[in-house]
Design a protein around this nucleic acid. Structure first.
Lengths: 222, 222, 222, 222
DNA sequence: CATGAATGAGTCTTCATTCAT
DNA sequence: TATGAATGAAGACTCATTCAT
């Protein structure tokens, strides 16, 4: 009846223990249904994972594409990409973590499809960096490494962000937009007046309340 | 003695498929020994993982500590930390990946110990950032987020770096030192003349030649 | 009403894959109905099987009994039994196969009932052979083995016969009547003028068209 | 340590309940080992079945080939084939039953291989019948149906024979040789002086003592 | 030092069946 | 009449680990 509930249970467990270490019975228990019933909603454990990752990548790509259309200025575009990426990652943090860590658990067909989606998404960053570099807006040595650095930095938000923590969502987004500007050698004031912030949606797969032990990390984080 | 071979086999498999998805028999096969023999070298599957992670964190901490002692200038210290982190991560890329991803596979005791080690290591970055901020060398808004951004960005090297790729190790190190400088609002020229590069050691646990399929990532990477 | 469709679907699958290897969902799919609906027509998977076997044995016994009443001459009686057995087996070949192979899948009560039916039927052959032997019409060493030999030989028709094959139904029936005559040491000409052929009915449970792969057998058969 | 024991346990259960209805745990219990241990001896449930059927067909073919070489006289050759077939089938009755009934449980590759073996074996009968027909030794209408009739009749021995029953092995063999002679229109006395009986071997897969319930058949049989 | 044999608990998935709708 | 949802038990098979040799 509620596929969302199953997804959220799965994300909770996959993010905490990992896909391979999560049993199907455990999944059922977390979702409040019998493990056999789970197969009514989902063809297999893997296809459940694929569903989760796919919806996450779709959201990222859609929002990224919208960000690209918002402006013709590479600086604003990058700001849009970064804030969108950070926003989605922070709000759907466990889902994002699963999408990052568990790609390898997929078998050939699913992996090929979803890796292609991720590549397509990351290319958005590559394109903006290339263009900003070409037209002289950015001061970059190596666009490839710059793309990787920005993406890893932003994706990392999924590793430490906690809703209700010291900083609010928009503050974090703004911080990373600023960081990205520094990495591309652009003064942040260039963005003054630009409206690059999109609304961020919580995915169906994102658990509402995080159980405490989801945070394996120590006392240092954030 | 041959423990190194076991470790390398383990890292190869853990990095590719993950700890939970790797069987003990598979490990034996990769290492060229019977799975039962494996228990002569290693107490259990988990203690093998713990050994790998521990040696990686020890290496990071030792090198980081050396970097801190090299200079009193926060800028040089941070450059040392970053270059060391990137260097170790790149050279021992699969080991680093395992140390990053598989912490959650550990049971309580091991996790507590190793998480403490990681926290202690990351604190080195925090301390330098704090001091650089306090003495006015750095231009930072939020030291915590800055630390997280730098660390995630640098650790990400383990996700895409390939030995023998387009850029050499030192180029990559230098790039990230430069990136870190930008993030802390320091001109890279401040490092002119400073010798912050340490030699980077390949760990016993790092496989010499990476099988191609270790790289799940698509065509975009690096 | 549509019970026939269910039976035919069942026979198709039971004959091909066996009772135990056939799922209830598969049955539903083959019959074109939901697996739950199946329980409206049939109490359980086993009772469906019992129904099929029962109707097959009833047909055999009824026809056998009629054959016995047709004549007082043991030779003609046996010819009637054999032609009837072969005819029913050939025309309802899949049903007959199920009735032969899947008796063991039944639980106690059903098995007892249906095994008794089969015994009763086979006794018809035993009685004729006994009498033919006693009155000196047959030249037999051992009536029991003779009965078994004739029955196995005739039942075997279900294993290789194909409607539309090289030989027609009546030809096959006649062949086996001749073979039986030889086995009991009687010249076939003794049957000249005797009308022992009955019309053969297709059972409700017999699928009309056999899917090709029902025939697991190789190129040799018939 | 004793693959034979596993095979015998399997044959016992497969013959009684059928392959599909036999659980792996049941197999282990019957063989006196843990179900997991079973996988040390046998790759899978199916490969266990294939092993059993293969060894049975190999025995039949070997003995049949020897019978063919014993004489150039088609009558003697057929007598050799029949006595060998009946002998092996009777002595390895449960194995033979499994080989007959459970071919369909095999998946493609195994089925193709083993069906080819059975076809090759049955061709021996076909060849003898063809030649005896051609040279005028036999009085046959249709060699194909004659082959099928003889084979079904003889294979049927596996359905009712009981060691220690009323008739001894050689008596049964001699009976079926006589029956085959009648079916091909040859006087049994033609075999006087011919030595066509081979020694019959018990296969590794044949259980020594049959548990009572192996006999699903009723009171009539033999 | 090395290994084949062994196992209880676990894996994911399918089973026949029931029942509210 | 018909079905989607639901489930406890069972399916085949793999697991990490131990131990006698």
């Amino acid at each position: 009846m509620d596929l969302g509930r199953v997804q959220r249970a799965a994300v909770n467990l996959f993010a905490t223990k990992g896909f391979a270490a999560t049993g199907i019975r455990e999944l059922g228990a977390e979702a409040g249904i019998n493990s056999a019933t789970l197969y009514h909603y989902v063809g297999s454990k893997e296809s459940l994972l694929a569903l989760i990752i796919r919806s996450c990548l779709t959201e990222l790509t859609d929002a990224g594409t919208r960000a690209m259309r918002c402006s013709a200025d590479p600086v604003v575009q990058l700001a849009g990409l970064v804030s969108s990426h950070v926003g989605i990652t922070a709000v759907n943090q466990l889902t994002a973590r699963v999408a990052e860590y568990e790609m390898r658990a997929l078998t050939e067909v699913n992996r090929a499809e979803l890796q292609a989606m991720r590549d397509e998404y990351e290319m958005l960053f590559g394109q903006v960096l290339e263009r900003g570099h070409r037209v002289g807006s950015f001061e970059i040595e190596d666009t490839t490494m710059c793309r990787l650095a920005i993406l890893e930095m932003c994706t990392g938000v999924a590793h430490w962000y906690r809703p209700g923590g010291r900083l609010g969502l928009e503050e974090v987004q703004r911080y990373f937009v600023g960081a990205a500007c520094r990495l591309i050698g652009v003064d942040r004031s260039e963005l003054d007046g630009a409206d690059y912030l999109q609304e961020v949606r919580r995915l169906d797969s994102e658990p509402a309340a995080h159980s405490a032990d989801v945070w394996g990390t120590g006392t240092l984080a954030y």
